[in-house]
């Protein structure tokens, strides 16, 4: 498995986690996973950071013009996957809704 493939796998993982954080930042989806309310701002900040890191990984893997397209399409695939998971088996995202992301938690 060569270098490029590893960077792409990392990009996919980061994007997947990013999308779940962004989804969980919405109260309607947080509710599906655990009680209480989410720390939306915090979750969105790290969510977008992960999306940015995912972009960096894409650019390490490919020529710039292809990296942009790969990044956008991974975003679409990840968002669709998270949407489907939230629809069918939301509890599987519980591990991503760490306690520190709940509103009112002390960090």
């Amino acid at each position: 498995m060569n270098n490029n493939t590893l960077w792409l796998i990392l990009a996919i993982i980061l994007m997947f986690i990013a999308m779940s954080w962004l989804a969980l930042s919405l109260p309607s989806h947080w509710k599906q996973v655990r009680s209480g309310k989410p720390a939306s701002t915090r979750l969105r900040m790290i969510g977008w950071s992960a999306i940015f890191l995912s972009a960096l990984c894409c650019f390490k893997a490919d020529h710039a013009s292809m990296a942009v397209l790969v990044w956008l399409m991974i975003g679409a695939a990840a968002a669709a996957s998270i949407g489907m998971i939230l629809s069918a088996c939301p509890h599987r995202l519980k591990w991503l809704s760490l306690g520190s992301f709940a509103e009112g938690s002390k960090r």
Partner: peptide
């Protein structure tokens, strides 16, 4: 953005899926 309420009636669930597949 991530909403697909498959447990709801066909009309609502279909619209959710229509919106999601279009927007993502």
């Amino acid at each position: 953005f991530f909403t697909f309420r498959r447990e709801k009636k066909t009309q609502r669930a279909t619209l959710d899926l229509h919106n999601m597949s279009g927007v993502v």
